[in-house]
Design a protein around this nucleic acid. Structure first.
Lengths: 191, 191
DNA sequence: GCCGGTAAACCGTCCGGACGGTAGGGTGTG
DNA sequence: CACACCCTACCGTCCGGACGGTTTACCGGC
């Protein structure tokens, strides 16, 4: 064979992380087992343990990839629209990324659900991440409360969707997304 | 005996449900095992299985108690302030209950976290519950989006706290609570 | 150009412990 | 006695993790 793996396209590691997220949203966090992940990824358990020597390391990998993906997407969008990006632009793009990521990849925040379910101690990193956003965007002219409320609503929507708790129809969902983005812009200017 | 249960004060069933919630928030949903709950409640495993013949029945009990407690508190508050309660009053009292319940009983929504972690199918009931609130309060003069956003923010705050994801200081937390209640009142009048 | 060697990547199996659940017993009260 | 309530002891299964083996990828030396 000239091309043994012509299009690996997605490394085994990535496929394992995808599979882990899938398991969490489809079966629930308590069913996130090494066997289940390996099976769902089409990789043997030994193969999984090669990349992630323990369940905890798998969870860390999930969290790390999640944060990296979101940050990278935000940076990419800011770069794409060129030039000077104000603070509110960063806020808007982040909210947009979070809201738009979900439909195409329903397991966005699955890492956090899983990490918190396995060991709440893991969440310290996430809290710090969150705190940074708060410290940056809380300085917007709209004020701390207004900004935090938008952030809370976005978070509420995403978490609800992850927990299969969201009752919104797709139409309502996009109405809410638009309303959230409007609220973001209101944070950029003093009322 | 004049008093049949002089000091049980809290029935075994209630203590078991308390313990289950405690386990979820302290150790994470994956550690919600029958043994752990029984131990944390100071009751034997057999005793637990007397009241809840299966893990699923325990989860159902947690969910049922949660909804009942919240609804009862809302009803009690509405009754306490007497007379005619408008729709926005119901909304406000519900938000207030949800926000104030947490500090005194940090495991408010633990049932939902646990249920979703064990089997996402359980969440259908919760979605319906949520839908009802939406249908009722969405008819407020403030409009659907505004109301849903407040509801989302409340939900986001509570879920974040349950997952140990909330980075807010107590002071910030009460500022946010006040802001949320203000937002509720804005839903009651056309802008 | 092909050989031996080495490390990376992956596979399949096994094990101790923990998990959900069962069986059956024991105690007090009416 | 009957019932509600709670206990101890135990069983089968699944989980996390360890381990040894096998294939592939990439070498330098000749």
């Amino acid at each position: 064979m000239y091309f043994r793996q012509p299009i690996p396209m997605r490394s085994a590691r990535e496929r394992l992380l995808d599979a882990a997220e899938r398991v969490v949203v489809e079966a629930g966090a308590t069913h996130l087992t090494l066997d289940a992940v390996a099976k769902s990824a089409g990789i043997s358990k030994g193969g999984l343990l090669y990349h992630f020597p323990s369940k905890e390391s798998l969870l860390e990998g999930m969290l790390a990839r999640h944060f990296h993906q979101v940050d990278a997407q935000v940076a990419a969008r800011l770069a794409a629209r060129g030039g000077k990006a104000s603070r509110v632009d960063g806020f808007r793009e982040r909210v947009r990324v979070l809201l738009e990521l979900h439909p195409e990849r329903p397991a966005v925040g699955a890492a956090m659900i899983a990490a918190s379910a396995e060991d709440p101690g893991h969440m310290a990193v996430c809290r710090e991440q969150y705190r940074k956003l708060l410290d940056e965007f809380g300085k917007l002219p709209g004020g701390f409360e207004r900004t935090a409320l938008v952030l809370l609503a976005v978070q509420g929507l995403l978490l609800a969707e992850l927990l299969h708790l969201s009752p919104y129809t797709p139409a309502e969902r996009s109405r809410l997304a638009r309303a959230l983005l409007r609220a973001v812009d209101q944070c950029g200017s003093t009322p």
